[in-house]
């Protein structure tokens, strides 16, 4: 090996080793927060009882609380947080816009409308689904929005700004439609509709959790496979094109995959704000935009944020479970303001 190769390797290593450390560190923090998440909750379990429950040696009630109530919440915090982090990271990359998140293009308001249709009018898109009516409806509507965006972005002259504007238009459309339903809904439907839109991890049980885990990992693998292409997208459309990236196609497909991921997360847990917006910003500051690390770090930051928010939602007001979506928004707002006043890496 000659000296240039050695030197090049040294530079490259010095760029990457910190990022690897960062990923290891975040993973450990997520592990810790997940454990803590298992130990806090409304049911009065002592430390010892929880430990016993974890190894399945406690009484049936404690086992149930640990395995069927707390564990799905703890894990869905990690994976839904990760999904939102991934979605936000890629949305900000392909739209090259610091305000983008998985919800930017109206995907979540479409999901809300789907849920509202199910709750208020009991109209199902997929017949004979029973309990899954609300979930499936919101999923289908979210994907419908995605397909509309996909079709729109196939237009020859559509670019980032027209896409964002189209997304905003969809957002307004679905919000208005939801409001109409709210207007005609009776009191109890209205209440469940409002509760649905809060965003909460308690409605995710084991079966849904598995779906989320699989979808999140699949999408992570898809984006990971395209990591360098997506890194090139961060430069500029023309630069990426001159490097040989089919910019429009990459953007279109990325949005479709994000939509699938977001639709899954939103239909199972409702809208959980700010995680998707904030995680990529934190990740960018910590490790830059080399997608191999940026993507993973965004996912991990998202996981950690939602995991911590989930703990807070159980402990902030003792004895009361605050919907986790409210907690993330309340943590998110100060951060959002900070973001506006501080110069951020990458988007100045």
């Amino acid at each position: 090996m000659n000296s240039t190769t050695r030197e090049a390797r040294r530079i490259y290593r010095s760029l990457t080793y910190k990022k690897v450390l960062l990923i290891v560190g975040l993973s450990i923090m997520i592990l810790v927060s997940t454990l803590v998440n298992l130990f806090v909750g409304n049911a009065d379990l002592t430390l010892g009882e929880t430990l016993k429950g974890l190894v399945m040696k406690a009484d049936a009630v404690s086992n149930f609380v640990i395995w069927d109530l707390r564990m799905p919440v703890a894990f869905s915090a990690v994976f839904i947080g990760g999904a939102l982090g991934i979605g936000g990271c890629e949305m900000q990359t392909v739209l090259r816009n610091p305000m983008a998140s998985s919800y930017t293009l109206g995907l979540s308001s479409a999901a809300s409308f789907g849920a509202a249709l199910a709750i208020v009018l009991r109209i199902s898109i997929v017949p004979g689904v029973g309990n899954l009516l609300v979930t499936l409806n919101s999923f289908v509507f979210s994907l419908t929005a995605a397909v509309l965006i996909h079709a729109f972005s196939r237009k020859k002259d559509s670019d980032r700004s027209t896409l964002i504007l189209f997304g905003i238009a969809l957002n307004f459309l679905f919000s208005a439609l939801t409001q109409i339903l709210q207007y005609v809904a009776n009191e109890s439907d209205l209440q469940s509709l409002v509760f649905w839109s809060f965003g909460s991890l308690t409605k995710v049980g084991w079966p849904k959790l598995w779906v989320i885990i699989i979808v999140t990992l699949l999408c992570l693998a898809y984006f990971g496979k395209n990591a360098w292409k997506l890194t090139a997208m961060a430069l500029s459309d023309e630069s990426a094109q001159s490097l040989g990236v089919d910019v429009q196609k990459t953007r279109r497909n990325t949005i479709l995959v994000i939509a699938f991921l977001t639709a899954t997360a939103v239909s199972f847990a409702g809208t959980i704000g700010f995680v998707g917006l904030v995680s990529p910003h934190i990740a960018r500051i910590l490790c830059g935009e080399d997608q191999r690390y940026f993507l993973v770090t965004s996912a991990l930051v998202g996981s950690l944020l939602l995991s911590v928010a989930s703990i807070l939602s159980k402990t902030l007001v003792p004895g009361t479970l605050i919907p986790v979506g409210l907690v993330t928004s309340i943590i998110g707002i100060p951060f959002f303001v900070m973001l506006i006043f501080k110069k951020k890496k990458g988007y100045v």
């Binding site: 890194t231 961060a234 430069l235 500029s236 023309e238 830059g288 990458g346 100045v348």
Partner: peptide, 13 residues
């Protein structure tokens, strides 16, 4: 292209 590679959080390397 005329416009350069922009303000990204990528290192020169």
């Amino acid at each position: 292209p005329q416009h350069d590679v922009g303000q990204t959080a990528l290192t020169v390397f």
